[in-house]
Simulated scan of single mutants.
Amino acid sequence: MNTFYGEAFEYEQPVLVSELTSRLSESDSTMVIAKGKVVEVCQAKGCWMTLELPNSETMRVTFKDYGFFVPKDLGGKEVVLKGKATISETDVETLQHLAADAGKSEEEIAKITEPEKGYAFLASGVTVVE
């Protein structure tokens, strides 16, 4: 039986995270159950993670209402998540905060000077694929 973080949900054929990028255009968002590989998890609390996308890009995943966290050791594992995928822009201050959470050096953090457009996912539930 799967352990769920946040809301438990049923799934049979989740969409691959790598396929979400083609479903999203500039102003689109989509509610979806998706499956992907975790690249990185917030090492402070487990309050965000990134998932692998094609072309060495990543999708940042945050959790609805800051209502739950995931284990900090999920890097490299497959997860299924339910929620809303969007295209978003992240400001410099937030990017620097996220880099600090990920354990980046002061030097690496100082190099962040531009906002970043990317893919985001607001998850209401997450489970690890066993």
Rank of each mutant, 00 (worst) to 15 (best):
L122K: 12
P14H: 06
L16W: 04
K72E: 10
E12Q: 15
G76P: 08
C47E: 07
T21C: 09
K72N: 09
E78D: 15
D28K: 12
V79F: 04
Y11I: 00
T94H: 12
Y66N: 14
K82Q: 11
G75C: 09
P115I: 01
M31W: 12
T58Q: 11
P14I: 05
L20V: 12
S27F: 14
V32M: 09
L74H: 02
I33K: 09
P54W: 06
S22Y: 00
V61M: 00
E89S: 12
S88V: 15
T113K: 12
P14N: 07
T58W: 03
E40R: 14
F121K: 02
I33Y: 04
S88T: 15
E57R: 12
S29A: 15
L53I: 07
E116W: 12
A85T: 03
P71S: 08
L53S: 05
D73R: 01
E108W: 08
E93W: 10
A99F: 02
L98D: 02
E114D: 14
V32S: 11
A85V: 06
A34F: 03
G36M: 05
E116L: 15
E40T: 15
C47D: 07
F68L: 05
V129Q: 02
K111N: 12
F63N: 01
E114A: 14
G83Q: 01
V39T: 13
V41R: 00
S124R: 03
M49S: 05
L81V: 06
L95V: 13
E12P: 08
K117T: 11
E7S: 08
T30G: 10
P115R: 01
A123P: 08
F9M: 05
P115D: 00
K64Q: 13
E26V: 13
S27N: 15
S29C: 15
